[in-house]
Design a protein around this nucleic acid. Structure first.
Length: 334
DNA sequence: AAATCGCCCAACCGCAGGACA
DNA sequence: ATGTCCTGCGGTTGGGCGATT
């Protein structure tokens, strides 16, 4: 069996698509649906390779494609998701309805990346280029770029997040408490200063990553990692939690968000373990407790995802029905 | 008005991996 | 078990176009 060339076949057209070609491709896909790209050109009367047809359809002709400039909200999402996924453009694009991976990638490379650099933030690591945290740059953030929230907006956002964080933790606490012991979580959350930062300005996933990747020795500041990650997860889910929970599609977003969170949690744990083979075992008792909490949290999130995948009807408890036996958690958010 | 420059983005390229025979 | 097909992905390219000289 010899593999036939795809894009190297002679006589195939390359370059910009004409209106006539577009019409042929649209007509064919509308009639026969997507797929079978290799044989599509012949059937549709196009002198293009299948790959080129698929790309043209996916990036330009698909009816659900959103055109026009990226909104501030979309840009913020891209930055946040890039901090989690890196250059996984398709993963990022999936969270932006109507946007293609190519479009997101182009927008990142031509606009967002430059803006981050201008602000002194390394677009690869999301850390400050001068070695300091991107959340605490030497110069105050330029309000005209990247994160344009003014102080009021931030304040409102943080208040909302506090409540959302409480809800999220409430849910985790319910699950965690049943499986282990609520007192463990209480100890962690009630362990002092770190949680003060929980209600301070939004901590990005990149900041979490900074914390986790710079993890060297267990110390009190390491607890921040866990809290920030939870905060990040609540941030990811903020639109979800404020949505109509009677809409089943809402849960799709929840698990998209949890997927982000789970991936990040796993990466954090990997960092802890892989930094030094001994580190994980050398954690002092309190840190070990916190790490075990993160492991449990990761497991809970993964279990949740599996449960939903396996069941045709979602069994996720709507937020409104979440057991509020852990309602005291709100007190920790000032 | 013409030439040059720089930016943007649609399209291409090569690779990876799952499905299938 | 092996090789091909097919699709999706991320990186790169180059043509179009507006701005500048």
């Amino acid at each position: 069996m010899v593999r036939t060339p795809c894009c190297r076949a002679e006589g195939l057209k390359k370059g910009a698509w004409t209106h006539e070609e577009d019409h042929k491709l649209i007509a064919y896909v509308q009639l026969h649906g997507e797929g079978g790209w290799r044989t599509l050109p012949d059937k549709a009367g196009l002198r293009r390779c299948g790959k080129s047809c698929r790309l043209r359809w996916a990036n330009y002709l698909r009816p659900d494609i959103k055109r026009g400039e990226f909104s501030q909200e979309e840009e913020d999402s891209i930055i946040r998701l890039h901090a989690i996924h890196g250059n996984k453009w398709s993963a990022i694009a999936r969270r932006l309805p109507g946007r293609t991976d190519n479009e997101v990638k182009n927008h990142w490379n031509t606009h967002i990346k430059k803006r981050l650099i201008k602000k002194g933030i390394d677009p690869l690591t999301h850390k400050s280029l001068n070695g300091k945290s991107s959340d605490h740059p030497e110069t105050p953030p330029d309000k005209s770029s990247v994160h344009q929230d003014d102080d009021d907006q931030k304040s409102n956002k943080n208040n909302a997040l506090g409540s959302l964080s409480a809800r999220f933790l409430n849910r985790v606490a319910n699950r965690f408490g049943k499986r282990i012991n609520q007192s463990v979580l209480s100890d962690i959350i009630g362990s002092g200063d770190p949680f003060t930062s929980f209600t301070t300005p939004t901590t990005s996933a990149s900041e979490c990553e900074k914390s986790s990747s710079s993890f060297s020795k267990p110390n009190s500041s390491d607890l921040l990692i866990n809290e920030n990650m939870i905060l990040d997860a609540t941030s990811l889910s903020s639109s979800t939690f404020s949505s109509d929970t009677s809409d089943p599609s809402v849960y799709d977003h929840i698990f998209d968000d949890l997927e982000d969170m789970t991936a990040f949690s796993s990466r954090f744990l990997n960092d802890v373990v892989s930094h030094d083979d001994e580190d994980f075992l050398m954690l002092d008792e309190s840190c070990l407790e916190k790490t075990s909490f993160m492991r449990e949290l990761t497991r809970i999130l993964q279990d949740d995802k599996i449960e939903t995948t396996m069941c045709s009807d979602s069994r996720v408890t709507p937020i409104s029905e979440v057991d509020v036996s852990f309602e005291g958690i709100d007190n920790w958010f000032g």
